[in-house]
Design a protein around this nucleic acid. Structure first.
Length: 558
RNA sequence: GUGCCUGUAGCUCAGUGGAUAGAGCGCUUGCCUACGGAGCAAGAUGUCGGGGGUUCGAAUCCCUCCAGGCACGCCA
C-alpha cells in the first residue's frame, strides 16, 4: 500500500505529502466485505486534499499484483477491503501440516537470548494461588518466546537468608520437638500451617530424636529442602519448570551487591544522609534525635518522586540494592530480552530497579515487567484473604486437585494480567464439566477421533484436492491464519491472555464445522472425504500448538 | 492526599482510534442413525460508571467527577 501511494504521488495522481510511518491494516470486522480492511484512505484524505473514496480508488489503481491477494475493493466512506486469493489460502493447509509442531513459528528473536523470571517465592511454604498466576503468566510467555525464535531460560529468584526463613526454621524446630512429645510453643509470628507438622514427622522418621539439640539453623536447612521439593512438584503439575534457581545470597558472596553500590556512587547517584534530600518537615519531625546516616539512591534525578534507601543506617542493605545488583547480573549474563513477572504491589520496586539500571548505564528497556493484579478467592460467596504465615490460604495444589491443571492454567490465562482475577472456587469446582477448557480440548480430540476412524477404514488424505472444500472450511482456514498475528500481539503487548481467547474463538468455528462437514459419512464422496481429512489434519496441528503454548495438554481422547 | 490498575449484558470477562460493541456462564426454544454430545441450531438481555472535550469517526485519546482494588517504610 505504501508502494501504491508512492507510485500515485510519482504519477501525479496524488499531491506530494509525507506518508505516516505506519499505515493501518487489520482483519476486517465484516467478513462479507473482505478478509482485511484498511481505513487508510480516511486518514490520508486530509493530507491528500482529496475525498477518501478517491484516495482509495487511486491506491487500488497503483497497487502491484500479489499472489496472496485476489482483490482490492473500495467501500464507503473510504475503506479499502482486501480479499485473499483462494488458491493461496487453501495451500496454507498443506503448509500448516508440513510445519507440524512448529507451525506458525516466527523468527523474531533470531536466536537471541531471553530470560523469564517468575514465581520467585521464598521457600517458606507451599505455593498459593497468587504464585500460580505468576507462574502461568511467566511460563506461557516463555513458551511464546520460544515459538518466536528466542533461546529462552526460566529463572527462579529466591532469598533464604532473611528473617522469615529464620522464623521458618524456628517453627520447624518447635514442630519437631512437639512431635517428640515436648510441650514447646511455636515462636511468636511462627508459621502455623499444617505442612510443617508433616515435615517434622518426616524428620522424626528419618533422624529419630537425634536432632533435638540442634539449633534452628539446622532446621532451616531442612525446611528449605522440604519446601523446594514441594514447590518443584507443585509447579511441575501445572507444567512449569525452571532452568536456574538463583539465590540472592550469591550476590553477597561474590560481593556484587557492593560493587553495584560503588558503581552507582561513581556515577554520582549516591549520597549519605540521615534524611533524604527534599524531605518535608513531617518526615524530619518523625526522625529520632539519635538517627544515623543511611545511604541513599538519588532516583529523583531519574524521575522518581523521592530518593530510596540503599543501605540502612544499620549498615544492612535494603531489598532495593541486591535487586538492582541481580538485574545487572542478568544483563551481564548476556540476555537481550528479560521478562519479570510481578504482583501489582511490586510496582515501585520495578521502577526503582529500572532507574538503578539506567543510572548504571544499562539499557533498562530490555527488562519487560508484567504486573498482574491480585487473585481473589471466593468461597461460599465470601472472599478469602490469604496469609502464608497463619497458614490460611488456598494452595495451588488444592486448586489443582479440585479442578485439574488444565483448568487452572486456562482460567488464569483467560484474563488480562491487568484485570483482577476473581477465582470462584465453588464455581470452578462445579463447572469442571462445562468449561471452555474442554470445549477447546475437545476440538483436538475430535480431530484425533477422525484420524483414528479413518485409519480403521483405510482412508488417507493422499492426493487431496483442496479446492473441493466449501465456504465454512475456508473460513476456518482464514481463522487459523490469524494465529501468527495473535502470537505477535501477545508478545508485543505482553498479553498471554490473547492466546486463550484466540483458542476459544477458533474452537467456536471448529465445532459447528465438525457438525456439518463430515468426513466418514456414507454420502460423502471419497474425493471430498480426502480433502476434508486433510483440513482436519491442519486443525489438529493448530489446536495442539495452541494448547501446548498455553502449557495445557492436547488429549487424543476425552 | 499522591501514584498505578479496574469500571462493558444478570454474573465472569474480551475488545484500547474505524464499518452493526462480543464471548463464556446463566435463561428460553428446538436437535440424538453420535467420524466420542464435554456438541449443534435459534432467541432475549447493553445510559460501554457519569459529564465535558479532541476527531471525518471514541468503549478506546484528553480533562473532570464518582466507585472499587493495590501501592505509597531505613519490611522483603
Amino acid at each position: 500500500m505504501r508502494q501504491a501511494l508512492l507510485a500515485a504521488q510519482a504519477a501525479g495522481d496524488l499531491p506530494p505529502f509525507e506518508l505516516p510511518p505506519t499505515l493501518p491494516i487489520q482483519r476486517s470486522a465484516r467478513p462479507e466485505l473482505g478478509d482485511y480492511a484498511s481505513p487508510a484512505p480516511l486518514q490520508l484524505a486530509k493530507l491528500a486534499r482529496r475525498k477518501p473514496l478517491e484516495v482509495a480508488e487511486i491506491i487500488v489503481r497503483h497497487t502491484p499484483h500479489s499472489p496472496l491477494v485476489a482483490a482490492w475493493e473500495v467501500a464507503p466512506p473510504g475503506f479499502l477491503n482486501i480479499r485473499l486469493d483462494e488458491t493461496w489460502l487453501l495451500e496454507q493447509i498443506n503448509t500448516i501440516i508440513a510445519a507440524g509442531d512448529d507451525v506458525f513459528a516466527l523468527d523474531i528473536g533470531r536466536g537471541k537470548r531471553a530470560q523469564v523470571e517468575c514465581v520467585s517465592a521464598n521457600p517458606t511454604g507451599p505455593l498459593t494461588v497468587g504464585h500460580t498466576r505468576n507462574g502461568v503468566i511467566g511460563s506461557t510467555m516463555a513458551n511464546l518466546l520460544r515459538a518466536l525464535g528466542y533461546d529462552v531460560q526460566m529463572e527462579y529468584y529466591f532469598n533464604n537468608a532473611g528473617r522469615q526463613m529464620r522464623i521458618l526454621g524456628q517453627s520447624l524446630q518447635a514442630r519437631y520437638l512437639q512431635t517428640l512429645g515436648q510441650p514447646v510453643p511455636l515462636p511468636e509470628e511462627g508459621y502455623q500451617g499444617e505442612y510443617l507438622i508433616q515435615v517434622a514427622r518426616d524428620l522424626v522418621k528419618q533422624y529419630g530424636d537425634t536432632l533435638k539439640d540442634e539449633g534452628w539453623e539446622r532446621f532451616k536447612v531442612e525446611a528449605e529442602k522440604a519446601m523446594f521439593a514441594w514447590i518443584d512438584r507443585s509447579l511441575a503439575r501445572i507444567n512449569i519448570r525452571f532452568d536456574v534457581y538463583f539465590n540472592e545470597n550469591s550476590l553477597y558472596e561474590d560481593s556484587s551487591v557492593w560493587k553495584t553500590l560503588e558503581a552507582l556512587e561513581q556515577r554520582g547517584y549516591v549520597y549519605r544522609a540521615v534524611l533524604r534530600e527534599g524531605a518535608g518537615d513531617e518526615e524530619r519531625a518523625k526522625l529520632p534525635p539519635d538517627a544515623k546516616e543511611a545511604v541513599w539512591f538519588r532516583s529523583t534525578a531519574l524521575g522518581d518522586e523521592e530518593d530510596r534507601v540503599l543501605v540502612k543506617s544499620s549498615g544492612e542493605p535494603t531489598y532495593v540494592l541486591p535487586d538492582i545488583a541481580y538485574h545487572v547480573n542478568k544483563l551481564e549474563r548476556g540476555f537481550d530480552y528479560l521478562i519479570n513477572v510481578l504482583g501489582a504491589d511490586h510496582i515501585v520496586e520495578a521502577q526503582t530497579v529500572a532507574r538503578g539500571l539506567t543510572a548504571l548505564g544499562y539499557d533498562a528497556s530490555r527488562v519487560h515487567v508484567i504486573l498482574y493484579q491480585f487473585v481473589t478467592l471466593i468461597e461460599g460467596g465470601e472472599q478469602r484473604k490469604m496469609s502464608t504465615r497463619r497458614g490460611e490460604f488456598v494452595t495451588q495444589d488444592e486448586l489443582v486437585d479440585d479442578v485439574g491443571a488444565d483448568v487452572v492454567r486456562y482460567f488464569i490465562l483467560a484474563r488480562s494480567p491487568n484485570s483482577h482475577l476473581e477465582f470462584d472456587l465453588d464455581l470452578a469446582r462445579k463447572q469442571a464439566n462445562e468449561n471452555p477448557v474442554y470445549y477447546i480440548q475437545n476440538a483436538h480430540v475430535r480431530c484425533a477421533g477422525i484420524f483414528r476412524q479413518a485409519a480403521e477404514r483405510g482412508l488417507t488424505d493422499d492426493g487431496a484436492d483442496l479446492s473441493l472444500l466449501g465456504a465454512r472450511e475456508r473460513d476456518f482456514v482464514r481463522k487459523m491464519l490469524e494465529m501468527p498475528e495473535v502470537l505477535l500481539q501477545s508478545y508485543e503487548e505482553l498479553a498471554p491472555h490473547k492466546l486463550a481467547f484466540y483458542a476459544h474463538e477458533l474452537a467456536r468455528l471448529f465445532h459447528p464445522m465438525y457438525d456439518e462437514v463430515r468426513v466418514l459419512h456414507s454420502d460423502v464422496p471419497p474425493e471430498l472425504a480426502k480433502a476434508r481429512l486433510r483440513l482436519y489434519g491442519a486443525a489438529r496441528v493448530v489446536f495442539r500448538r495452541l494448547l501446548t503454548l498455553m502449557g495445557m495438554s492436547a488429549p487424543e481422547v476425552m
